[in-house]
């Protein structure tokens, strides 16, 4: 898009060549100024804050994680106990790690599969012109985002507790159950609670993503459809969905990746329990690295790296899959 927007630029770029001293093999970018003289310093100064933090808190930690993962290191003293792939060997046999991986993936998929369609539906409903009070409803769905996840988790542990929580009080009053239900007593119901509470919390954010995507659909298209007598359903399926598809892929990726980082909710809502049955990977890493003495930074790093690779492969293959599907559709005109 920028290329088409800036096509009139080349004549101007042609006007500057007097200072043409480019001996670099790189092809100069016609849309960007070449940096010369004193500006070099400014470019450097502008890049510096980001680069420093990026180097310190993203790039170096990535490299260090790989490095630590080959050592048996508890964070104290020098890193000298090289164990090769020993950590990886232990992790491959660590049942708790694989349980955590499976839980994380179940959580991420279930969470995404429920929240994306529902938040899209809600975004479509709340952007209808005929609807009254959209601002109030928008605020309602956004509200859970402003409380820390961990706090939300604590509130729900109370609301869902079997002895005097609101859920059980309601269920008992309505005679739906005769015995209080303890949703945290069993792995599957505890996982489901994690998924649902997380959706409750994050719903507004995805609704806003969808609303932003919907705003990019030009109003005239809908007006034209109105004239043709299209129903709301036809407008949604034949205009809205196809037009927001590119953004939808990005939102899908964001949703999946964010869901794989679930941490705070697990800490406060289930604490990994009952037993260790709702461990997720970030909680596993936290427990290994900081949870109990002796800390095992090396082991935690290996686990982190292994899961990052698993997640990366899954997410990118899914991205490739989506692109392939879109291509096929285009080819066959479906």
């Amino acid at each position: 898009m920028t290329a088409t927007l800036e096509t009139p630029a080349p004549p101007d770029a042609g006007a500057t060549p007097p200072a043409r001293r480019r001996t670099r093999r790189r092809t100069p970018d016609p849309n960007r100024d070449q940096v010369r003289g004193f500006d070099k310093l400014w470019v450097f100064v502008f890049l510096l804050p980001f680069l420093l933090l990026y180097l310190g808190f993203t790039l170096w930690p990535l490299v260090a994680t790989v490095y630590y993962s080959f050592f048996d290191w508890d964070g104290i003293g020098p890193i000298d106990n090289f164990v090769g792939v020993g950590n990886y060997g232990s992790i491959l046999n660590d049942k708790l790690f694989w349980l955590a991986v499976v839980n994380t993936l179940i959580f991420a998929v279930l969470n995404t599969a429920i929240k994306l369609p529902l938040s899209l539906l809600m975004a479509i409903v709340l952007t209808r012109k005929w609807l009254k009070g959209t601002k109030v409803f928008r605020t309602v769905f956004f509200a859970p985002l402003i409380i820390p996840v961990a706090m939300a988790g604590l509130v729900f542990t109370y609301l869902l507790n079997p002895s005097n929580g609101a859920l059980n009080a309601l269920l008992l009053d309505l005679h739906i159950v005769d015995q209080p239900v303890d949703v945290f007593a069993n792995r599957w119901s505890a996982l489901l609670v994690l998924v649902l509470v997380s959706i409750w919390q994050i719903f507004g954010q995805y609704m806003i993503y969808w609303m932003a995507a919907l705003q990019n659909v030009p109003e005239e298209v809908y007006e034209a459809a109105d004239i043709d007598g299209a129903s709301e359903w036809q407008k949604a399926t034949l205009i809205t969905l196809p037009m927001i598809k590119p953004v939808a892929v990005v939102i899908l990726l964001l949703a999946l990746v964010n869901a794989m980082h679930v941490f705070g909710l697990v800490v406060t809502l289930t604490g990994g329990g009952p037993g260790t049955s709702t461990y997720v990977v970030s909680y596993f890493i936290y427990q290994e690295a900081f949870g109990s003495v002796p800390f095992s930074y090396g082991y935690a790093s290996a686990a982190a790296l292994l899961f990052s690779v698993i997640a990366f492969v899954l997410v990118t293959s899914q991205g490739v899959f989506v692109r392939r599907a879109q291509q096929l559709r285009k080819e066959y005109g479906v």
Binding site: P61, T65, Y68, Y286, S301, A304, L305, S308
Partner: peptide, 8 residues
């Protein structure tokens, strides 16, 4: 993910 590089 932050969790995976928090140790370094």
């Amino acid at each position: 993910p932050v969790a995976s590089i928090i140790v370094p």
